[in-house]
Design a protein around this nucleic acid. Sequence first.
DNA 1: GTCGGAATTA
DNA 2: TAATTCCGAC
Length: 356
Amino acid sequence: MHCGCVAEDAPAVLGSSWISGMAFPDWAYKAESSPGSRQIQLWHFILELLQKEEFHHVIAWQQGEYGEFVIKDPDEVARLWGRRKCKPQMNYDKLSRALRYYYNKRILHKTKGKRFTYKFNFSKLIVIHHPLWEVRAPPSPHLLLGAPALFRPALVPMGMPSELLHSMLFARHVGQETPRGLPEATEDKKGSGGSAPRLGSLLAPCQLGPCCLLGSPQDELPGLAAFTPPLLPPLPSDWTRLSGPFLPPVPLEQPFPGAPKPDSLFPGPGCPPVTHHFSGLTLLAGLGPGAGERLRFLSLRPQWLGVKPDPLMGAKGRPSPRDGFSSDIHGPKTGDKYPVSPHLENCRAVWPLDPP
DNA sequence: GTCGGAATTA
DNA sequence: TAATTCCGAC
């Protein structure tokens, strides 16, 4: 931002926040954490604006719809964006074109019928920021419910349409909102959605094995959000059993120095005290009222994400951003739980701040 | 208002 | 690569 343009009206970012019931971890608001670019990206900027109360007359979260926001003053948002990018000629037409490019990337989608209303695709944002979470492995109750799984970054199944994840996470009542037939799963046109960092280089599913414990997260994890979810999802009573088939024993982990210790977040049988937060975990865990129930719903269905060879995998070994998923969620899978042994060489530890 | 193609830019 | 710019179509 050395173009001489003034950015004083660009929102400052401090700490993590709850805005109208919407939580994002710190990194989501920090320009320097904008992935894949040295410059701030539009979606990032939008989040910044949404975070700041002084811009709520310009852009704000849509009450009642998680992730949905309304641009109340398109011209002003465009002006702010243009100012940030040193593009004085910016207008809403151009800005909206940039937003539309996010449709294919699945970062954003339009709320049809509502003017200037868009909706963030949370899982995609999570994946963008935590690429390793696309590891094709079943979700662990540990991960989803906050037990110490900090060193096991598998969370979002690769190819999982964020719409579905989103609806699972945000549905007011489990089972009320039926996944809408994965509308985008078949409408891929040019497959431009590969812009987000993905685990194309991941050779094989990691299976949450010890190989996933690589790295030194203390040094490399992004800034951890310090907020505590307002609702603490109770552990499923059988979570230990659920974790059995595909989870290695959970090692005790050292707390982050200086990190808050929400020890009592997820107490449960066999569940060691949670000693720290994964920022992405807080994102999921901090989804707001009812999130616990929804997370439990999600976590109790690991078979959805049963690891198996993906017929949709292309020659490059990864699905297109829009096509994956569908066959993965249609029902429990038995057998072939370990198509690839969870050996070290099959895994690659990539932390969000890894250089490309 | 919204969409997306095409060319261009940094 | 992530927009920016322009524009025709709906």
